[in-house]
Structure formats: structure tokens, C-alpha cells
Amino acid sequence: MQAVRYARPSSVEEAVDLLEQGGDRARVLAGGTDLIVLARERRIDVDLFVDVKALEPLTAIRYDPADGLAIGAAAPCYRIAADPAVQEHYPCLIDCATLIGGVAIQGRASLGGNLCNASPAGDGIPALIALGTTVEIAGPKGRRTVAAEAFCTGPGRNVLTSGEFVVALRAPPPSDRAGAAFRRFIPRGEMDIAVTNAAVHLRFDGDRVASARVAVGAVAPMPLLVEEAGAALAGTPLSEATIAAAAAAARAAARPIDDMRGTVKQRRHLAGVLVTRCIRIAAERAGVQP
């Protein structure tokens, strides 16, 4: 481990100050399951860990039927997975919170950290995008929000500027006939980084898909919201043809690379497979038989 200092601010303002003063070399420490590894392996240069877990808004999980869900950016996966409101209204988040790493990783890993780490394969991100999550950011100039799909700008890069950090992730309130799902493909049963992942949110109006959001990961420098796939589904009842069209749109949007975790061909193919699987589960969760 490089020579790193540790600070545990007790207010959002203090955290902003520490991060601003520290510049590039000060990093937010949430669960540390990415950050500690990066810092230890000297893949990034860090002087200061700013531990945000003492800040209430970063660890709270709040649900309100009118406002929707607010997940503190540093709330660990196991708490998200155990939250009754998330279980009832946002099963798609349970899908990812229960499969990031193993149980011990979920004891620490947060969705905020997953998002900010901005891995193209981050398993939390497609679900956040599909759900239409907004990212609440605190910084030297106060608060701002960014849509989840606009947050990551490349591998390991995001929209945050000096002194900024993510406070909470806000998902809109659930609607009646809606459902969402997240799936990923890994070669092992657990403990693996996604070769490809995908999430789908469907809202129905009667039989008709009123709106659809389709996101895929690990097929581009950042997780993608595939608008064409959503458009292929929206406006008509779900059918094999629309599902196939959405899958084809996801494959077309994919611009994957060959690396140690998967091949171009495999990833593009899987984008279609996983989107198809997510659509079916999302529809089922919405109470619609595709």
C-alpha cells in the first residue's frame, strides 16, 4: 500500500473541503472494495482516503411512495438487499446487490462506489440506468444532479469535478404495472467480473409497453442506455418480434473489445441474450406474460 492518510469527515461540507484540498490524490472511501485494491496495487496515486461512511445521507436508505427511493451512495449492498422497500419495489436492485462479489464483498461494497468506479462492467450501473436513477452530487458549488446514464464518461472516469462526490442515488417511485430486472454473464457461478450485463425496465399500460429502458454493460467504454432497444419495445404489446428487435438493437449498440474477460463476438451475442432474458423477467415482475 502506498503512503496514504485516512480522514473520516463528520459533515458533507468537511468532506467537500478535504476532497477539494486533496485534489486528484484524495479519494472517497466507501466500501473500499475497488479503491483499496487500486491503491494497494499502485494503479492510482492516492494521498488521502476520505471515508464518507460517517455521513448519514451517504448511508441511509429511504423510501417514500411519492418521492421514490434514495439510497445513500455508501450504503453497502447487504443493507440494500435486506431493505424491505427495495425488496418490494425495486427487485432489480436486489438482483445486483446480491451478486456483486461474494457475501464478504457485499458486506462493504456500495452502489455509489460501483457507479463512481465507472467500470464498464460495473454490475450496479445498468440497473441504475434502467430504473432512471438520478445521481445527487455535493460539491464546492453546492448540489447538482446527473442522470445515471450520463454519469460515467469512460473506463474509470465520471463527471465529478474537484471536490465533488456522490451523496445519494434517487430512483423514481415505482409505478403499478412496471417491472425491472438485471442479469449478467460470468464464466463462474460467482466471484467474477461480468463478461456482459444488462438491465431492463418496462412500464405497461394495459397490454402495451408504455415505456422501456434498456441498458447494457461491458460492451462499450461505459455502460450504455440503448434508446433504440427501448423504442423497439415501447408502444406495442410485448411479442417475440419486439423482444427480438430490442435484442438486435442492443447487439447493434454494443462496441465491445476483446480482453481477458471475453471476446467481441461473445459480448455482442450476450448483449442480445441478456436483454432478452431481462425483458422476460421484467415483464413477469410487472405481472405481464410475454
Binding site: L29, G32, F49, D51, Y78, A104, I105, G107, R108
Partner: peptide, 12 residues
Amino acid sequence: RLVCACLVMAAE
């Protein structure tokens, strides 16, 4: 909670 001790800072 179950954690990996190698992914926790002592200071935490």
C-alpha cells in the same frame, strides 16, 4: 458483517 480484512483499512 462478514468482510475481507484485506479490504478494510485498520483506521476504519
